[in-house]
Simulated scan of single mutants.
Amino acid sequence: MNNAAPEAEGSRGAFLLDSTVAGAGPRGFDALRHVWETQIGDVFRLPTFSPTTIGDLRVKGRAAKVRDVRFADVRSASALAGTPGDDHDAAVMYVVRRGTWTLDDPPDRDEHTVSAGQFRLRHFERPYAFETAPHTTTKILALPAARLSPVLGNRIITGPADSAEVRLLVAHTNMVHATIDELGPAGVHAAHSTLIELAKAVVRRRFDDTEPQLAPALAQAAKDLADGHLADPELSPAMLARQLNVSVRTLQRAFAATGESVGAYIRQRRLEEARLALTAPSRRLSVSELAAHWHFADSSHFIRAFKKQYGRTPTDYASSTRPAGG
Rank of each mutant, 00 (worst) to 15 (best):
M93I: 05
R98L: 10
A64Y: 06
D104L: 10
H34A: 15
Q39H: 13
A63T: 09
R33Y: 09
F49Y: 11
A116L: 04
G61C: 09
V96N: 00
G82A: 02
F44P: 07
R122N: 06
R122T: 12
G28W: 00
D105K: 12
V74K: 04
H112P: 05
L103E: 07
F71D: 11
R45L: 12
S78L: 09
H88D: 08
W36P: 10
V96T: 05
H112C: 06
R58I: 05
G61N: 07
R97E: 13
R45D: 11
R45W: 00
P47D: 03
M93C: 15
F49I: 04
F49D: 04
F44K: 08
R33V: 12
L32M: 14
K60W: 01
D110R: 15
A63S: 15
T48R: 01
D68E: 10
V96H: 05
P51K: 01
R75I: 13
L46I: 08
D42K: 14
I54W: 04
R97Y: 06
D105Q: 13
E37G: 13
V92M: 02
H112E: 11
G61D: 05
G99E: 04
V96M: 02
S76R: 06
D105H: 11
A91T: 04
S50E: 01
G117C: 01
A90W: 04
R75H: 14
P107Y: 04
G55C: 05
A79L: 00
V43D: 11
G28V: 01
I54Q: 03
G117F: 11
H88G: 07
G55D: 08
T100V: 03
A81Q: 12
S78N: 02
V92C: 01
P26K: 09
D87T: 14
S76E: 00
G82R: 06
A31N: 14
P26H: 08
T100M: 05
D105M: 13
A81E: 12
G55K: 02
V66K: 05
E37T: 15
G41P: 02
L46G: 01
R45F: 00
E37R: 15
R70S: 10
L32P: 06
G99S: 07
R120F: 10
D105N: 13
R98T: 13
R67T: 09
V92I: 07
T100I: 04
R120D: 11
T52M: 08
P107R: 04
G117Q: 05
I54M: 07
S115G: 12
T52G: 13
M93N: 06
D87N: 14
H112I: 12
G99R: 01
A116F: 03
L46T: 01
G61P: 02
L80W: 00
R122L: 10
L32C: 13
T113Y: 05
L46Q: 01
G41V: 09
D110T: 15
F44I: 09
G85T: 03
A91M: 01
D30M: 15
T113W: 02
P47Q: 00
P107D: 04
A63K: 03
D110L: 15
T83Y: 06
G41C: 10
D108V: 10
E37I: 14
R109Y: 13
